[in-house]
Amino acid sequence: MPSETPQAEVGPTGCPHRSGPHSAKGSLEKGSPEDKEAKEPLWIRPDAPSRCTWQLGRPASESPHHHTAPAKSPKILPDILKKIGDTPMVRINKIGKKFGLKCELLAKCEFFNAGGSVKDRISLRMIEDAERDGTLKPGDTIIEPTSGNTGIGLALAAAVRGYRCIIVMPEKMSSEKVDVLRALGAEIVRTPTNARFDSPESHVGVAWRLKNEIPNSHILDQYRNASNPLAHYDTTADEILQQCDGKLDMLVASVGTGGTITGIARKLKEKCPGCRIIGVDPEGSILAEPEELNQTEQTTYEVEGIGYDFIPTVLDRTVVDKWFKSNDEEAFTFARMLIAQEGLLCGGSAGSTVAVAVKAAQELQEGQRCVVILPDSVRNYMTKFLSDRWMLQKGFLKEEDLTEKKPWWWHLRVQELGLSAPLTVLPTITCGHTIEILREKGFDQAPVVDEAGVILGMVTLGNMLSSLLAGKVQPSDQVGKVIYKQFKQIRLTDTLGRLSHILEMDHFALVV
């Protein structure tokens, strides 16, 4: 994948999101292997301009796509893939009243899908469409860049269908997702969380590099694949309309690839034109409109599966009536509230959605109805927002919020430890010299600072030695090549209790 991002070429006709291997024109390309080798690009942008032909009021008969309808489940399912879809609609009884809503608040519980998330729908649909058009064949390999849930859905379907599955996901995604993927037989590649989507090191860039190296491999490409919004247009939206008897006044959905909100909203605009569509985008993402909503100094966020630093091709923002931004604290607070007060075992993005819903639905009156999409299960986040310690460490809970008995030293300040200034190293000294210094002084790690004293990161003896043994660096290389740029900081005025929580999850903390 090139470091400079080429513009994806656009073909003359058809839909841009065809499933299957992508040609340089962004659509299915038939021909000899030699032709494909000559024409197939190194990668295709996940934010390529959409060429979708959908228009409100256009006859369904003019759609270029294969459409399906929700099917009634048999008493005995032939395999677990038949437990994807037909998820329950559940009334939220307490939270709406707590925040003064007059309307009825309903939750579409997508964590009841077989793999635990709304992404099971698009995973199965992308595979079925690729099999139907002859792209996927027995023994082929599926590769997908994902925040985890699409990966789980694909790995689940691949396990049943017999495909090899490789999932490329950023490091910030939970260990629970990784464990589930491994249990399903998927191979996992992790990428830096802070890598831009168009960087060769991003999950998108690495996935395309693997595709170019592995024979008979395919990126189904949830960011561009029409099967993504079509899955929701054909099934999720129809289920909502049936469950609500066609009567709903507002739908609120958090947005990642945009397939969920695009597919549902398009069908609702056709069948229930008075329904307002509300999009939820986390602070630090750029999906919301108008652009002024996205202006923030924050560039990272903890909530998973929603928000991006690019506009995915499948996201149709014209069908969203209003956007709201959400933050991590309210997302996790509301997710825990949904679990504790409503018994809905949902993930953090569901918290984002409901946090926005109780604001947006203030305009609705008694007798009206708001539906929220709860995308995934708490299963993926047992060591994250479900953990009091994690919430404390991230600053989303305060010590006084917890009532468990603490040891005698818990409320003492870090400054009472009488710490001395640490050994520091410059980023320009060599790895070999740094190892000598650390061994001589008896230290395992040291902060790396520039000549102005600005902290650049941390270097550890173990990481340097393993990097040297693996051949990633040489003793003569500058130590700046092996620094940890993500590390926890703590102030002298913070409590030892807070430091204790940090050290339970990290090997060190830097006192500043």
Results as ranks from 00 to 15, higher is better:
99 F>H: 12
257 T>Y: 00
210 L>H: 03
83 K>S: 10
86 D>W: 08
232 H>M: 00
186 A>L: 00
63 S>P: 07
7 Q>V: 15
49 P>D: 09
21 P>H: 10
248 L>T: 09
18 R>W: 14
169 M>Y: 02
212 N>G: 14
256 G>T: 00
112 F>W: 01
210 L>N: 03
144 E>H: 01
10 V>S: 15
189 V>P: 06
35 D>Y: 13
256 G>K: 01
234 D>V: 03
22 H>D: 04
39 K>A: 13
248 L>M: 13
198 D>E: 09
134 G>N: 07
29 E>W: 15
96 G>A: 15
228 N>Q: 01
156 L>I: 06
60 A>S: 11
180 V>P: 03
261 I>L: 07
113 N>V: 02
266 R>M: 05
23 S>K: 10
39 K>Q: 11
173 M>K: 08
168 V>D: 01
243 Q>H: 10
144 E>K: 04
198 D>I: 06
220 L>R: 02
53 T>M: 08
143 I>Y: 05
137 K>E: 09
173 M>N: 04
87 T>I: 02
243 Q>L: 12
113 N>H: 08
246 G>T: 15
241 L>G: 08
94 K>V: 06
72 K>V: 09
200 P>K: 08
66 H>D: 12
4 E>I: 10
2 P>A: 15
147 S>T: 04
67 H>K: 10
203 H>Y: 08
160 V>G: 07
88 P>Q: 08
104 E>K: 14
80 I>E: 01
239 E>I: 00
24 A>T: 14
241 L>M: 14
31 G>E: 14
270 E>T: 03
163 Y>T: 01
105 L>G: 05
190 R>E: 02
168 V>Q: 02
258 G>K: 01
22 H>K: 03
251 L>D: 02
20 G>E: 15
74 P>L: 15
156 L>Y: 01
28 L>W: 06
224 R>H: 08
19 S>W: 15
187 E>K: 12
237 A>H: 06
152 I>L: 03
78 P>R: 04
109 C>E: 01
97 K>D: 15
119 K>S: 02
70 P>F: 06
81 L>M: 10
174 S>R: 01
197 F>R: 06
24 A>C: 12
254 S>D: 02
245 D>S: 09
119 K>Q: 05
142 I>S: 03
276 R>Q: 07
160 V>F: 02
117 S>T: 06
92 I>C: 08
244 C>V: 13
122 I>Q: 00
248 L>G: 03
